[in-house]
Design a binder for these strands. Structure first.
Lengths: 223, 223
DNA sequence: GTCGCTTAAGACCTCCGACGTATCACGTCA
DNA sequence: TGACGTGATACGTCGGAGGTCTTAAGCGAC
């Protein structure tokens, strides 16, 4: 195994074992390199790799720190990976989202605060009846993000955030080509919000399923 | 932005845009460094980072290649990230798995082959009535992996693979401390398999839910 | 003609030393 | 007391020198 890979494993080990805790500062490059028995250049490769996936936070002139290791932060790195997926796997991503999002919406129905409900309502009101496709899709992302956040599960929240990325382009495309896709989306958002207000988890779940399934169905018929 | 980060973005761009396709070989380090306008050392940091998340495959003595970019391969990198999560988030991971796994099992009920069913049966038979906890957990992972694979969704499959890792330790712990956890797991596996044989998606979903919920419940009461 | 070994070229691996740049802390001065 | 300047510190970047591994061409024996 290459010395750099060893260094990655050792640093990972230090964090997993608790020797390095979130927020801790690592020894400076030259010292850590000496400790781990490799050159500063090779160590930097290891640190850079761990930095890309948000394990380490490198600040020039200051030092290198362990990040908070929050699920939200770590899974955020997933969206970087997701960007590489080819268009032909969008349907598989959407299928997973179709499983997770209704469940998350149902969970949110039981936990969401009145304040959050009002915020979502205001958001939909602000958008108006005939928004641009770009505005709608941006609002769509924000709407679902807000709901999923209220599910209370940060892993679920981050996961859905990552999965939603690849379908964004598809949704824009749909908005531009399918008749009444905008109006339909707006109506479905209102329905989901109403179900949340009623604390009706099953209705919320069903509307979320319908909402995603309509995109899925359209995409399947188009590809 | 640092030159290394620029290089990461540029290489990513080349892949996403299609200039570099899966399996393609990159120019050699010295050439690519010159093309991108940075030193070979800094370029290596970029390549190493992309290599860690399985975007690039570096082979000493040969060259650097773009991986297949299969969802399975890319999400495999997620398990590396998941390893960093602290024990207090295991419940959140388990909650997500509780959503995905029943759905995957239900999907599998409609698609799984007779051959695969026989393989799963043979696997359970081979384990016997009183396996060691380690064998049981390993078999447990393999059993679920086989079922999820039959769901036909590789993104779902890889995702569950990544999520199952963190709970492995918990399951071993449970097997060692909870009375009849082994017998219960074996019975539930048989029940899931029977539902799959009957092509009964709803029964399969329910048994999978019960199976995971029992772990979740035990874990919640223990923490 | 085929198989197996030797050899050389190509590409990545590791290291070293030097210099550039950003940040923070301390001391100075108004 | 507060703002500013300065130095120490740590990361950022670079060029070059060997080292190691893979591959394939070259060559001889069967």
């Amino acid at each position: 195994m290459a010395v750099t890979d060893e260094a990655i494993e050792k640093i990972k080990g230090m964090i997993v074992s608790g020797a390095l805790r979130p927020g801790d500062r690592l020894p400076k490059e030259s010292e850590l390199a000496a400790d781990l028995g490799l050159s500063r250049n090779s160590l930097r490769e290891a640190v850079r790799a761990l930095s890309l996936i948000r394990i380490l936070d490198v600040r020039q002139g200051d030092g290198t720190y362990v990040t908070s290791l929050d699920p939200q932060l770590l899974l955020e790195a997933m969206s970087f990976v997701v960007d590489f997926h080819r268009d032909d796997t969008v349907l598989e991503f959407l299928a997973v989202r179709r499983i997770l999002e209704p469940a998350a919406t149902a969970m949110a129905a039981l936990r969401i605060s009145e304040q959050q409900l009002d915020a979502l309502t205001a958001q939909l009101d602000k958008l108006g009846d005939a928004p641009s496709v770009e505005d709608l899709v941006a609002c769509d992302l924000e709407f679902h993000r807000g709901i999923v956040h209220s599910s209370g599960n940060s892993v679920l929240c981050s996961l859905l955030d990552g999965l939603s990325g690849p379908t964004t382009r598809a949704r824009i495309w749909r908005g531009l080509t399918q008749e009444d896709a905008v109006g339909r989306t707006l109506r479905e958002h209102r329905a989901i919000l109403a179900a949340l207000r009623d604390r009706d988890a099953e209705a919320a779940r069903s509307w979320a399923t319908v909402h995603i399934a309509s995109v899925e169905q359209w995409l399947r018929s188009t590809l």
